[in-house]
Amino acid sequence: MILNEKTQYIRGIELIREEIDSFKKYPYCLPAVKTLSTLDFHPRVTFIVGENGTGKSTLLEAIAIAFGFNPEGGTKNFTFSTNNTHSDLHKCIKLVKGFKRPEDGFFLRAESFYNVASNIDELDKSGLGNKIINSYGGRSLHAQSHGESFFATFINRFYGKGLYLLDEPEAALSPSRQMALISRIHDLVQKASQFIIATHSPIIMAYPDAIILQLKDTYELVEYTETEHYQITRQFLNNTERMLNILMQP
């Protein structure tokens, strides 16, 4: 089954603006927040793209916490806290949910995935119950490269019928692995999954059954070839020598 507008897990979000004292303070001063009223998501894949500092990760974090995920990532079963740095934005976010509930879910954020891997190792040392790492391929995520551990999670831990929030999943992936991730996303979409992905990767955001929300001063619904990521990458690859000469001018 493939999700549609009636069966998707999160239909959108609303910012409860009257709960915010000042849009001059962090994180409410970020473009991702201060221009937000309502945001609708694609029933299968939504990409949120934009320049560094626009607030993409902060927004995705708020959505994840509001849905019940650990701020540092993982499934809803993870309760550890390494560094309490998340914002209070989730308190001002209202999720517009569909009538179906996901049977699986994961919040993957590149910057704190190390902490998730460490927590899995610590919990498995207790010797109680089945080892958690078996759900990730059976090999400690710390015994793999950063990219291998990411991909092991995508392949082994994502079961389908799930809500998957990915924050810059390309951070540890080679271009070929990013293409493989597109294939894995498609497999999971066929198994009633919904993705919301914050990314800079022009490869990953090429997945066609999706919408792209480009964030500058406000949100704009754009086509893939209209994104700055695609246009800049294409310009660089098609005119590499010229672009390098421009970049290295004294």
Rank of each mutant, 00 (worst) to 15 (best):
L188P: 05
I155L: 08
V189I: 01
A210E: 10
F236R: 00
T46R: 09
D21N: 06
S135M: 04
I63Q: 11
H146N: 06
K131I: 07
G12H: 09
G138S: 08
L128R: 04
V33R: 01
P208A: 11
F107V: 11
N115A: 15
E5F: 06
T227H: 04
I196G: 09
I246F: 00
I246H: 04
L213M: 04
Y114E: 03
E14G: 03
C29T: 04
A110F: 07
S22R: 11
K6I: 02
G160Y: 11
F80E: 12
T75Y: 13
M205S: 08
H142P: 10
G53C: 04
E148Y: 11
L108P: 00
K125H: 04
S22C: 00
V45M: 03
E19C: 00
H200F: 02
T7V: 01
L95M: 13
I204Y: 06
H86F: 13
S126K: 15
S81Y: 10
S87N: 05
K25G: 08
A180V: 14
Q190F: 11
Y224P: 01
P202L: 12
S112T: 01
Y159E: 15
G138R: 04
Q178E: 14
K6S: 05
S183P: 02
F195L: 02
L221E: 07
N130V: 03
L163W: 02
R101V: 12
A64K: 10
N238A: 02
D167C: 12
D209C: 05
D121P: 13
I65S: 09
I196F: 00
R234C: 09
E223F: 01
P102L: 10
Q194A: 14
G68Q: 11
G127D: 08
K24A: 11
H86G: 09
I93F: 15
H200D: 13
E18G: 13
V116W: 04
P208D: 05
Y136E: 06
N115R: 04
G53I: 15
S174I: 00
I197R: 10
T46S: 10
F236C: 02
L244E: 11
L39F: 05
S183G: 08
D167Q: 09
F80S: 04
T85Y: 14
R139N: 00
N84W: 15
M248V: 14
Y9Q: 11
Y164R: 09
K94I: 14
I232E: 14
K191T: 00
F99M: 14
G147R: 09
G105I: 12
D209A: 15
T240F: 11
K34M: 08
N77V: 05
F41R: 08
L237P: 12
S37L: 10
M1H: 03
T233A: 05
E226Y: 08
E168L: 04
K25S: 02
L237G: 10
F69K: 02
A64T: 06
P202H: 12
P102N: 06
I155P: 03
K100I: 08
E5M: 00
E61S: 03
G98A: 09
L166F: 06
L163M: 12
M1E: 01
